[in-house]
Amino acid sequence: MEEKSKTPETQSGKGGDEIALDLMKFIATATGYGKGSQAVGFTGKGARTPEEHAEALLELFERCRTVVKKES
């Protein structure tokens, strides 16, 4: 019987994209990434639109995927 090598994916039961998604969720939740600042008073920049927020999260996910692929 042939032994399969145990990669991080097979040990945890998660694929690289799932790990990247978990990492992205953690970063976004812990830092408020993509939400923009919640300043009171006059500011030069308005709040982010939902499209801008989604784009920021997609960029973060791609960065997380790149890191996870490098590590495996």
Results as ranks from 00 to 15, higher is better:
L57Q: 02
C64Q: 02
T29K: 14
L58C: 07
F42P: 04
T10D: 04
K45F: 05
Q38H: 12
G44F: 13
A56T: 03
I27Y: 02
F42N: 13
T7G: 09
K45N: 03
I19A: 01
A30C: 11
G34I: 15
E55R: 11
E18F: 07
S12C: 12
P50Q: 03
G36Y: 05
K35P: 00
G32D: 02
C64S: 08
Q38E: 11
S5I: 15
G41T: 14
G15R: 09
K14Q: 14
I27A: 01
K25G: 00
L57W: 03
K69N: 12
G16K: 13
S5L: 10
T7A: 12
K70W: 08
V40S: 14
T49S: 05
T29I: 13
E62F: 11
D17A: 09
L60M: 13
T10C: 08
A54R: 11
K69W: 09
K45M: 07
E59D: 11
H53G: 00
E3M: 10
E3W: 07
F26I: 15
I19N: 00
M24W: 03
E62T: 15
T10E: 06
L21W: 06
Q38K: 14
G16A: 10
E55N: 08
A54S: 08
I19E: 00
T10K: 11
L60K: 04
A47C: 00
K4S: 06
V68E: 01
V67A: 12
T10H: 05
H53W: 06
F42I: 15
V68Y: 00
F42V: 15
V67D: 04
T66Q: 12
P50D: 03
V68W: 00
A30Q: 15
P8K: 10
S37D: 10
G34Y: 02
I27H: 00
H53N: 03
E51F: 04
T29S: 14
E18M: 09
E18K: 09
D17N: 07
K4C: 07
V68G: 00
I19S: 01
E2R: 06
M1L: 12
E51C: 03
G34K: 01
V67W: 04
G41P: 06
K45G: 02
S72W: 08
E59F: 10
E62V: 15
A39H: 10
P8D: 11
G46L: 08
A20H: 00
G46Y: 01
P50R: 03
K70E: 12
C64D: 01
L60Y: 03
R48T: 00
M1K: 11
E18S: 11
I19K: 04
G44E: 06
E3C: 08
Q38M: 14
G41F: 14
T10W: 04
F42H: 13
D22H: 06
C64H: 01
Q11A: 14
S72M: 11
T43Q: 11
R48W: 03
F26L: 15
G15A: 07
T7W: 08
V68Q: 00
E51G: 05
Y33V: 15
